[in-house]
Design a binder for these strands. Structure first.
Lengths: 200, 200
DNA sequence: TTTCTGTTTAACAAAATTGTTAAACCGTAA
DNA sequence: TTACGGTTTAACAATTTTGTTAAACAGAAA
């Protein structure tokens, strides 16, 4: 075996850029090959079919994300800090792969049965992981009453949506690329404050 | 002219269902024709090309949405009520066309220059429309300090994302179809509370 | 009835996309 | 050097998808 530049890995990495960074959710095999700078046939040589490559990419990236989120939510730190960590990770991951969420959404819209396959076999159930701590905060009066599900959905929504809707937001609010980036960094604090503003 | 069943309108309506309700963002002309129950050639007869139909659909639905949002934000009502109206409209519109946002996001990801074309020629700039009222609320102490941009992005994120991510959320939190629907209705109040919890 | 016009259809053509294959390539080791 | 292995390429085949067209159809009006 030669594999000097690890073509297989290059293809996967470049494909992730195309799908999850650039948001070309229906990229053709030719586009993937161009992005990776290789002959199109190599995609079939290494990955059999386009579909097979897609499944592989998705599984890799979702697994990585899942593990990170799990570690963050299981860590023994104060609740507010835990959520701050979650936001930090979501935005960092999101800056790297803004369209991952979009990809999952689109794929699960077309074939809802695939959700189980590539997503959540082991039932992370993030709301379960924060439930006790959240309820304790509410009892302390540090948070207004809210269910764990709604809290998590609020959190994930405010983290992911602005990344997804980059071009829309930039246009609506007339932001340059750097202004938008600055805006995203500000959001780390904004989201935390929005979730944690103390009840009166 | 005959046009008994208004084939042209039927095609557009059914295509909207396919794209914006069912989320089949890369539906083929055959799929559109099937959904509308007509011969595929009729799509070209009435709309010249697939692309032309797409642009038309998008413009129609975005214009409608824009007008509704504009009316809501320009209405002379107390701020909190105005935002409640916005949420109500976003969720109702979202329940009808959950994948409209996804469509816009995906299209603008692939060709960012198209944003201007189908989206915001007249610069709605929703954050401008609420800026004065929002700042007045903050001065009154009814709201914690936040910029109009972040406030709007928080609002839109919490409204749109859960609609987009229906299948993901249902899976992660193990919700039945009716449970999810109930969850969405609850969110009207939840989003409002999350945005408006008084600062201490 | 016949003609006319707009609508619909089936069949065809063209383009794009995926998947296959045989040959070329290129290090390495005999 | 030669032979061998995995790798890469160009060319081809099959399929899918878009777009075109000529003919069929159906109601209205002469």
């Amino acid at each position: 075996m030669i594999a000097e530049a690890q073509t297989e890995v290059v293809i996967k990495e470049k494909a992730k850029i195309l799908f999850f960074q650039k948001g070309v959710l229906n990229a053709t095999t030719q586009e993937i090959a161009d992005e990776a700078g290789v002959n199109r046939a190599l995609i079939h040589y290494y990955f059999r079919s386009r579909e097979h490559l897609m499944d592989l990419l998705l599984e890799e990236i979702v697994t990585a994300k899942k593990n990170r989120k799990r570690a963050i939510l299981l860590a023994e730190v104060p609740f507010r800090q835990k959520i701050a960590n979650y936001i930090e990770d979501a935005l960092e991951q999101g800056l790297q792969y803004p369209y991952l969420e979009n990809f999952i959404i689109t794929e699960t819209a077309r074939n809802p049965e695939k959700v189980n396959l590539f997503c959540f076999k082991d039932k992370l159930r993030s709301s379960e992981l924060i439930k006790d701590q959240l309820e304790a905060e509410i009892r302390k009066g540090a948070l207004p009453p809210i269910s764990a599900e709604h809290f998590m959905v609020n959190l994930v929504s405010m983290c992911n949506y602005p990344l997804l809707a980059k071009n829309v937001i930039r246009n609506v609010h007339g932001m340059s690329d750097s202004t938008y980036h600055q805006f995203l960094l500000e959001r780390k604090e904004v989201i935390l404050k929005t979730l944690f503003t103390n009840p009166h």
